[in-house]
Design a binder for these strands. Structure first.
Lengths: 328, 328
DNA sequence: TTGTAAGCGTTATCAA
DNA sequence: TTGATAACGCTTACAA
């Protein structure tokens, strides 16, 4: 496999000049550049990232650690982050831990070995040591959608979002409000729940029922909502702490012959594409996920370049009114 | 930053032995191993992947090139492939081209520079040169969901799937069948369409209307279906060449006050989670996406290890009957 | 504008 | 079971 040395020989120049051409650094005369580029193409030269990394000590790569890729939220996040990083001249090293600590540990080791310039980490399980190891290694760290000790954090104000959901339902005249959600251990979910409860308390109310499931999966969410309904509680509105949970509630309601929104209003959270798939379309609180991803990249760049962190506020959450809510 | 040399010094041994411990290769006495591991932990030693790559010439990494990560199909695929690769001792280098040739070219270069042991490439735009460059570089290549010259291909039989859709509708007594889909340039979509048309032809029929949109996005799909409906064609069943397209058809139908499945039956293709979100839930042809991902990994392993390729048949496609189809 | 030369941190071969 | 040593291919001062 042709190396820089062979290129230099054939082009009648030195390896230093070839390196300059390959990296676009330093001065090279147009004639020389053209000649070298020709030889590079001829010999199908492919630079060796290992050698470059060894010399440079850094890789212009940013690790992106996510718990899953088959979950829409993370898929979108990965996409936005990749775009942002690319635009700034960095490559994304996307890793998904698949909820497995073993995977996670191995990918963290791989990132460290790869000498990534930083890591953007999205809501990994609480008992994971990934963040700690990264911090210990002195790698710039940006947490997305959760807080991590020693790391900059970028996330929506889930508590405010919870208040918003309750507020909107209250404004519609609903008083008997039930809440369903999952996964129960997720911090954002708990914060939204707290927001809902607090806002209701201010109105002298409390949820008529709360039910959180362990798994954030459609079928499981339907079951959680069905179980709640089976207790016989009477609600005139239901809060889904995520869009999936709201969709689960709608299906559970439907199975019982209860109409949405005529009998019961339903509101979700996230505004993922799925919110628009149901009929009627789901009213939900939109989470500015793309802005979150973009801001995470921006903070990472600042961290890596030593610039001051921005204290920019996240775009506000907002209720997207669609068809599953109605005045009481 | 501590290197293997320093570790050796502090442990009172040679770098060769340290290397053996780090890589778990060769013989090292338990006592020596313990001592070295202690020092490694103390100094927070992190191996340098660049140096290792330079020496070894390969990275035990497999590139995974996808057009997007925020599309459910690819998210699931990436997830399955990552899992399979991990289980075989390889790391996945997941790259998404974001539909941009520029991104794609750069990631291909990065993969080449990284000396990946192989690349699994999923349906990238036809005019991309990615596959060609990879083939030229002699990198083992497995194409998923599309065919690429010079590469092993793993994909569902979309043509058969198309026939299956038509077949099922025909069996229900439908005769006036319209077809909508997107993106029109995608080979799988065209193959499904061919399957539908051929099966109808065997029954002496042809689609009452066909409409393909350029973008596979929910809103765009609704518009495509609405435009088809606006022409005034009378159909008693609609085929969505993807689940999204089918969902778009349902929404367009709904907007016109046409009931599903009472007035018009709708069938989709893929069986993504979204098929279950709508009410009634979508009847669709299930694509064995997880098996496809797993098989792609298996073929890649065989390619890399020089084993014979398997000629295993893909699990058959099947109609998942849910609520959007009814007897005429 | 181009060339010289000194490593970078490993792995693997061979010898002990 | 361990050690010495020679690459691996590149970047980057510094010199010319």
């Amino acid at each position: 496999m042709a190396g820089i040395r062979e290129i230099a020989e054939r082009a009648g120049t030195s390896i230093a000049t070839v390196s300059r051409v390959v990296n676009g650094s330093g001065y090279v005369s147009p004639a020389m550049r053209a000649k070298i580029e020709t030889v590079i193409a001829e010999l199908q030269f492919r630079p060796n990232a290992g050698a470059a990394l060894m010399r440079r000590g850094k890789s212009r790569m940013v690790g992106v650690l996510l718990p899953a890729l088959d979950v829409k939220f993370f898929g979108i996040l990965a996409h936005v982050i990749e775009q942002g990083l690319f635009a700034r001249g960095y490559h994304a090293f996307i890793c998904c831990s698949s909820e497995s600590p073993e995977h996670e540990a191995e990918y963290v080791a791989a990132m460290l070995a790869q000498r990534v310039d930083g890591v953007i980490i999205a809501s990994v399980s609480a008992e994971s040591t990934a963040a700690a190891r990264l911090v210990a290694a002195g790698v710039p760290l940006v947490a997305v959608d959760r807080e991590i000790a020693g790391a900059v954090s970028v996330r929506a104000d889930h508590y405010a979002g919870g208040r918003l959901m309750a507020d909107y339902l209250l404004g519609l005249g609903h008083r008997r409000i039930a809440v369903v959600g999952a996964p129960q251990h997720a911090m954002p979910v708990q914060q939204r729940l707290a927001g809902v409860s607090d806002r209701l308390a201010e109105a002298g109310l409390e949820p008529v029922a709360v039910r959180l499931g362990p798994r954030h999966q459609f079928e499981a969410c339907i079951e959680v909502a069905a179980a709640l309904l089976d207790t016989g509680v009477v609600a005139d509105a239901m809060v889904g702490l995520t869009d999936i949970a709201a969709l689960g509630a709608i299906h559970a309601l439907h199975a019982k012959g209860i109409r949405v929104p005529e009998d019961v209003s339903v509101i979700g959270f996230d505004d993922m594409p799925m919110a628009r798939y149901v009929l009627p379309q789901l009213t939900t609180v939109a989470q500015p996920i793309r802005e979150i991803g973009a801001l995470a990249v921006e903070q990472m760049i600042r961290l890596m370049t030593g610039a001051a962190l921005s204290h920019e506020e996240l775009p506000a959450l907002s209720v997207v009114v669609r068809g599953t809510t109605a005045r009481r």
